[in-house]
Design a binder for these strands. Structure first.
Length: 480
RNA sequence: CGGGGCGUAGCGCAGUCCGGCUAGCGCGCCUGGUUCGGGACCAGGAGGUCGGAGGUUCAAAUCCUCUCGCCCCGACCA
């Protein structure tokens, strides 16, 4: 069927690249590590962006824009931050034909420049909380790029907030993590596990890092969003202080949180199949594609007219619909074209349908010719939105079912090592280990502690590596 | 930076070991016609510094030296 796409089971990494090429999501760039996001891939990002942006606004955040260039000395102010980012910085040394007095770092993230500004803008407790977000590109020099998942330049959103108290900042950190979780479930049809990162996986400069972890089609984990409690680390480095009710100077407590174009990769790998991309209706740039079928000129005009009317009616009902009225390719070609691109619903409209007063429909998540069904012309506008909701729900349920089927438990490290050889996916373990155990785990099995889920079932057990008693379980998995 | 693979038409490749016809094949592209309910068919056509530089030779895609780049697997990361 999809002759240009390697089957997932044969080679998942190759399948991923094939889908990106065939669906025209992205292309390689002349600069290693960078990628060109093509219009269709960018349209998916726009859907992600618009959905999230609305959620940020609804939680009281405002958008702003901070500069791409950051004085190198800013990065150096927070000890852990420098250490963490130094290896992946791009640094500009020349401008206007002259060597710069101070090199400029191309932002890898904006905590430093934003704190520089916050320290000017925040004077008293009345200025707090400050809740900002920016949509921007960032650069982190990558040794091993992968389209969407890890590129040297990527697009993202970074929220930065300042609060009077630790409690408020911590609560903001968790609130935004839950916003990501809701976006993933409701828009991306992607179940995720919100959890706390171990110190080893923590953001450089944060007190605590939380993430949402999603399971890809091959059982690997993908960190799909992060939220950090920064404490007063950057506030101290940049002297971001406010005067409290008692006329005393206090450092602000901060959070930062982000998701990136990596989410596009997540959607590909969570939902895609051997025929290509499958998009949840919420994120699909085109939700319904209408393919007119005709032989004679008379048929063409009758069918074309009907197709245009259906399209208008659907758009009127808030559905993103499109007629593929190209004369230069056959209907069969169009079927594949839109299947590879993951469009949730296809309507075929030909003379036979018009005669019978119906359209022939098929849902991308129920592949195959036999799964086609018909909808009465009168019922299209009422039926399609219901179908789209159903597809959205089915795709989420399917992803949940696969994740659950590929999640298992191990009581001891030996058991983990024995089973993980044959079993992909997430392994739940009791965890009370430290950096040494994590290091050993990664060296010996290539897996890492993805997170310690926030939503624990309770109980107590012995840490699978150290044997020490623990009240929390962790997720162990291979990760991108 | 280590290990592996690859650079020949827009894309995918053969040809390279063992030097020798005018550098080929599939897809795509252009023109015309017939088609159109699951990637249509026929005929004609356009398209190449064989990644780059140097060398060996009567003769180099093919052999030698150097070089540039890309992809995959590992260490770092959203």
């Amino acid at each position: 069927m999809a002759e240009n796409i390697t089957p997932q089971k044969q080679d998942f990494a190759q399948w991923y690249q094939d889908v990106i090429r065939e669906a025209e999501l992205a292309d390689t760039s002349p600069v290693r590590g960078c990628m060109v996001i093509r219009p269709y891939g960018y349209a998916i990002w726009e859907r992600i962006r618009d959905n999230l942006d609305a959620r940020f606004k609804a939680t009281g955040h405002e958008n702003a824009y901070f500069p791409l260039f950051i004085p190198q000395s800013f990065i150096n102010r927070e000890a852990e931050h420098v250490e963490g980012f130094a290896p992946e910085l791009a640094i500009v040394t020349h401008g206007g034909g002259k060597q710069l007095e101070e090199p400029l770092v191309v932002r890898p993230t904006s905590e430093t420049i934003i704190n520089h500004m916050f320290s000017k803008w925040i004077g008293s407790y009345r200025d707090l909380p400050m809740l900002l977000n920016q949509w921007a590109n960032v650069v982190r020099w990558e040794m091993r790029p992968r389209a969407f998942l890890r590129t040297t330049e990527f697009l993202w959103q970074e929220g930065h907030t300042a609060h009077a108290t630790e409690e408020e900042a911590r609560s903001e950190t968790m609130r935004m993590l839950r916003v990501y979780e809701a976006f993933a479930a409701e828009n991306a049809a992607m179940p995720v596990i919100p959890g706390r990162k171990t110190d080893r996986e923590k953001f450089a400069g944060a007190v605590e890092t939380y993430s949402i972890e999603a399971m890809m089609g091959n059982g690997w984990a993908l960190q799909s969003g992060t939220s950090h409690y920064l404490g007063t680390n950057f506030a101290r480095a940049f002297n971001t202080r406010y005067l409290d009710e008692n006329n005393e100077q206090q450092y602000v407590h901060q959070s930062s949180w982000g998701v990136s174009t990596r989410l596009v990769g997540a959607v590909i790998m969570v939902h895609g199949d051997d025929a290509g991309l499958r998009l949840p209706p919420e994120l699909s740039p085109v939700q319904v594609v209408i393919v007119p079928i005709s032989r004679t000129d008379d048929e063409r005009s009758a069918v074309g007219e009907a197709a245009a009317r259906i399209c208008r009616d659907l758009e009127g009902a808030g559905v993103r619909a499109k007629v593929d009225d190209r004369q230069t390719v056959s209907p069969g070609f169009k079927f594949h074209h839109w299947e590879v691109r993951g469009v949730p619903v296809r309507l075929e409209l030909g003379p036979r349908d018009l005669q019978a007063g119906v359209v022939t429909a098929s849902a991308r998540n129920r592949p195959g010719r036999d799964a086609k069904f018909t909808i009465g012309l009168d019922a299209v506008v009422s039926e399609i939105p219901r179908r789209l909701s159903a597809i959205q729900r089915e795709m989420f349920e399917e992803a949940v079912a696969r994740r659950d089927a590929m999640t298992w438990e191990a009581a001891t490290y030996d058991e983990y090592k024995a089973v993980s050889g044959e079993r992909e996916g997430f392994c739940r373990v009791w965890w009370a280990g430290g950096p040494d155990e994590e290091e050993r785990l990664q060296q010996e099995t290539k897996a890492t502690i993805r997170c310690i889920p926030l939503d624990q079932e309770g109980g107590e057990g012995a840490c699978f590596m150290t044997g020490r008693p623990s009240r929390s379980m962790a997720i162990v998995a291979r990760a991108y």
